[in-house]
């Protein structure tokens, strides 16, 4: 029994970072219908930025979020404005976004490999080496910090969407783009801003996972598969869905990796994806698309 609880603890600890990784992706899809296949590449890019700040000026990765988040926010806004804004009315917009973001992911991967080489990297602040123990249980300090910060950020994003004027405009745009225009929401500006916010979340995720995982430029390929599973399971566009599915699947993967071995863990995600597409294609918290 103790063992089972320990597995759950380790699963939940990772769930927070997964949720943070998928929150930006689901926001970007919800508002703009962009399937951002470069999302994990942006996360890896932010992780390298955190790594570089840690090496160069010994900046703690939890503090470097104050840099990675605004930097990624600006990159996100510029990226949307330059490549997507003028195409938003194109009937094949979703197809276009898949191609553009896929290419972007490859370009980022190549750029990072050029600058940082393909060596496995991780940041090593003091807390990345120790664990908290309580009774028979333990939790790595790094994962606990990442979990807490992730939850704070996601709750913050949720409150922002729920209770601010701009946040309401973002939700309105997600629910009915046309009606949002009718009440005077500048949908183009809201889209640009949302892409910025989505990538700011990616920036935060990059800083945090820099001390939770090891990474290398091509790591984004594995992560985008996982993020897509989480986002689809939660319901594309649903922040709560991304959060719930992240904790669910992280815990499930933690069991699988304990009993079957770590190489089987990714199967958990794809199996969940397969099952949800079969039985509830709109996802746990998603809305059926009509027409």
């Amino acid at each position: 029994m103790i063992q089972v609880f320990q597995i759950v603890i380790l699963g939940l600890a990772l769930g927070g970072v997964y949720a943070l990784m998928s929150s930006g992706m689901t926001l970007i899809f919800g508002v703009m219908r962009i399937v951002n296949l470069a999302h994990s590449a942006f996360i890896v890019m932010a992780a390298y930025l955190a790594f570089w700040l840690f090496k160069a000026i010994n900046l703690d990765p939890t503090l470097s979020m104050a840099i990675t988040m605004p930097v990624m926010f600006l990159i996100g806004m510029a990226y949307y404005r330059i490549l997507f804004a003028s195409r938003a009315d194109n009937p094949r917009f979703v197809d276009i976004t898949v191609l553009i973001t896929f290419a972007t992911g490859l370009i980022i991967e190549g750029g990072l490999a050029f600058i940082f080489t393909g060596i496995y990297r991780t940041t090593t602040p003091e807390y990345a080496k120790t664990s908290y123990t309580f009774g028979p249980f333990f939790i790595p300090q790094s994962q606990l910090y990442a979990l807490i910060i992730s939850i704070v950020l996601i709750v913050g994003l949720w409150l922002f969407l729920r209770y601010t004027r701009i946040g309401n405009a973002i939700r309105a745009t997600m629910q009915n783009r046309n009606a949002a225009q009718v009440v005077g929401v500048n949908v183009r500006w809201i889209s640009t801003l949302s892409f910025g916010i989505g990538l700011a979340m990616a920036g935060a995720a990059g800083s945090l996972l820099s001390f939770v995982f090891t990474f290398y430029p091509a790591k984004h390929v594995a992560w985008i598969g996982m993020i897509l599973c989480l986002v689809v399971l939660g319901g594309m566009g649903s922040l709560v869905g991304a959060l719930v599915s992240s904790f669910l699947l992280a815990t499930a993967a933690s069991f699988v990796s304990f009993y079957l071995g770590a190489t089987w863990a990714p199967i958990t995600f794809y199996l969940a994806l397969f099952l949800i597409l079969l039985f509830r294609p709109q996802g746990l918290f998603g809305k059926k698309v009509e027409g």
Partner: peptide, 23 residues
């Protein structure tokens, strides 16, 4: 007032009206 009564389906009636005063 558009023809499809396009409200924001997952917002409350009050939130919908509040969006009416967005500008």
């Amino acid at each position: 007032v558009p023809s499809d009564r396009s409200l924001f389906p997952d917002m409350t009636v009050k939130e919908n009206l509040r969006m009416g005063g967005y500008i």
